[in-house]
Amino acid sequence: MGVITKTVRAGLLATVCGVSLLAVSAPGAYATGMPQLDFANPLVTGQVMWGAIIFFVFYLVLSKAMLPGVARVLHDRSQRITGDLEVARSAKQDADKAVAELQQARKDAMAEAQAHLQKVLDEEHRAADQQMQEINARLASEIADAEKNVAAEKARALSALKEIAADTTQALVHRLTGVVPDAQLVARNVESASAHRSII
């Protein structure tokens, strides 16, 4: 690029010098009619010399000052647009990542809550089962105690019944026969009779 730019500049300079020389030394050709072809007129060739100078100055001002300024503005703009697009893209990526994280967190929290709930329910079930078992055991022991008491009472009552039966038998026999029977004999008979009838 640098070589070409230098070549352009050198070529321009050479052209300006060449054209100026050519213009100054142009042979006079008298042409009637068109003032443009009146090369004897120094003003006609003079405008070539002035034109070369003005054109060269124009070229220098444009290439050194004006056009780089325009190029800078255009470059800055494209740079800024690219930068802004980049920022927007990264922002979108961040947002997408945040959304994904949020969803994951929600899913995790839901799973955790479910697990916790299950645990609590299990514990409650177990506690309830245990309580039920304890109550059942207590009730069973109370029932057993009560049955024992009933049996004891019953036995006591039955033993009292034998005594009453023996006494009654003694009294009956005494009344009927006027003989007081042997108490032991009566008790033995009552015993056998009750065993025979299996009251107990």
Binding site: V8, G11, L12, A14, T15, V16, G18, V19, L22, A23, Q36, L37, F39, V44, T45, Q47, V48, G51, A52, F55
Partner: peptide, 14 residues
Amino acid sequence: IAVTFAMAFMVFLL
């Protein structure tokens, strides 16, 4: 024509 030819000749030389 002097001006236009000077420019054209400049392009040619370039």
